[in-house]
Structures are given as structure tokens and as C-alpha cells.
């Protein structure tokens, strides 16, 4: 990535570079309990209100409902060891067609993505997953203990988002060091960028072989706690 950013900065990317996916396995990122609750249906504002009084006015880490707090602990314990943290990415020069739409190593035509990638010279395209273990757990609990199932859903979402955040922080840092700016990441399904771009995007990242991500007929990813995203760099 570093070499890519250096060349991007120097303006020496030709667009003819070979695009080869880089694959990484990450250590467990730190757990964010209030994010789990947020994904499980607790509005952020409530969590913030309950968290008042803490230094930095952060989200609450322990809900005031004791039974819920106990259940959340149980769920976190239950899910221990169920996650893997895998991510694969490619770096590519960002081209533009005649109308100024971005040209990427996978086909798309999106006004919203065009806007997101304004002033960008390159992109990092990524796929990440926390594995199928959490899906198995969700299966196990969603019908017999739906509250546990819901919290597991929340935890899976928190895990994969935190994994991508970790990578995103690395990207931001590397860009900053080089005087570049990383744009907010953008995913298929946002705005007018359809999820039908997923097959090409995943193929590009060798996501099936490297990460075990497959798509179903409706373009949903399995494992379900997987993310694809595009980070513009300018």
C-alpha cells in the first residue's frame, strides 16, 4: 500500500499496474459494547444519554437494564473464539470516462460514487469478513432465544465494522503521513451504487478463495458478517 500511495502522490501511476489482491489476517480488534447494542436496535441517542457523566461523554458500555446487561455479557462470552478477522484489498489508479464517471477495475456507473470519489486519484477496494462461526451461533439461537440471536447479530455487525475500521485507520494514517486524504468509505448498496456490482468486485479480490465469501442469487454475502467497500484517495 505504501508504495502505491507514494506513486500516487508522485503522480507516477500509469493505470497499467497489475492488480493483485493483498490478503491479511488481523488480530482481534477491541470490542465496542455500545455498538453491539446500537446494531441490536438501541438508538444511538439513548446510548449516549445513558453514557452521560463518563469522561469524554462516550456511549454507554453497560446498559442500565440489568437483565439486558447480563444477557449482553452472556452473548459476548458465547461468541468468544467464533470470529476470524480476514481482509483482502487491492489498490488501483482511478480513471475517469468522458463524462467524469470513475473507471474502476469492476464495472459500475454511479452518480453517488462519482461524487464520493471527487478529486481522488486512486482507490482502495476491500472485502472483509469475520467468518461463518457467528452465523452458526445466530442460527443456533435466533429461533429459540431471539433476544440472544438479536444481540449476536449486533455483535457480528460490530465485529466486522470494527475490523474494517481498523484497516481504514491504517489507510487514513498512511495517507496522512503522505499528505494525502482518504475519503469516507463507500459500499455497494449505498445510494445508487447497486449490490449487483458485488460479483465482479469479489472476483477482483479473490474473496471466495481468500476469505470464503460467496454470494447467493440475491447478491447477499455469506458469511453474512462480511463487508465490501471502496476508499477513495486524493
Amino acid at each position: 500500500m505504501k508504495e502505491f500511495l507514494e506513486r500516487l502522490k508522485a503522480g507516477s501511476l500509469t493505470g497499467n499496474e497489475k492488480i493483485i489482491p493483498i490478503y491479511n489476517e488481523y488480530d482481534k480488534p477491541e470490542l465496542n459494547r455500545s455498538e453491539i447494542l446500537r446494531y441490536a436496535g438501541f438508538p444511538a441517542a439513548v446510548l449516549r444519554a445513558q453514557g452521560k457523566g463518563k469522561k469524554d461523554d462516550s456511549f454507554c458500555e453497560v446498559p442500565t437494564d440489568e437483565e439486558l446487561a447480563r444477557r449482553l455479557d452472556e452473548v459476548i462470552e458465547l461468541a468468544k473464539g467464533q470470529f476470524i478477522y480476514r481482509l483482502s484489498y487491492v489498490c488501483a489508479k482511478l480513471g475517469r470516462d468522458d463524462e467524469g464517471y470513475p473507471v474502476l477495475p469492476f464495472e459500475q456507473h454511479s452518480d453517488d460514487l462519482k461524487k464520493n470519489l471527487e478529486n481522488c486519484e486512486g482507490v482502495i477496494i476491500l472485502a472483509a469478513t469475520v467468518g461463518a462461526g457467528i452465523d452458526r451461533l445466530i442460527r443456533r439461537y435466533e429461533r429459540t432465544e431471539p433476544a440472544t440471536g438479536l444481540l449476536l447479530q449486533g455483535m457480528g455487525a460490530e465485529r466486522v465494522e470494527t475490523l474494517v475500521d481498523t484497516f481504514n485507520d491504517e489507510v487514513n494514517k498512511a495517507c496522512e503521513d503522505m499528505g494525502l486524504k482518504a475519503h469516507p468509505r463507500y459500499s455497494p448498496g449505498y445510494g445508487d451504487l447497486p449490490i449487483t456490482v458485488q460479483p465482479d468486485l469479489l472476483k477482483l479480490l479473490e474473496a471466495e478463495k481468500r476469505l470464503g465469501i460467496t454470494l447467493n442469487a440475491s447478491y447477499m454475502m455469506s458469511p453474512s458478517k462480511s463487508v465490501t467497500a471502496i476508499i477513495g484517495i486524493g
Partner: peptide, 14 residues
């Protein structure tokens, strides 16, 4: 009335 949220509704249902 948004006094409790989805996880709690489900716990009650359980």
C-alpha cells in the same frame, strides 16, 4: 412509546 427497545421486547417475548 420507546421506553424499551427491541432486545428488551424480545427478552420479554422469550
Amino acid at each position: 412509546e420507546k421506553k424499551v427497545y427491541l432486545p428488551q421486547l424480545l427478552m420479554a417475548a422469550e
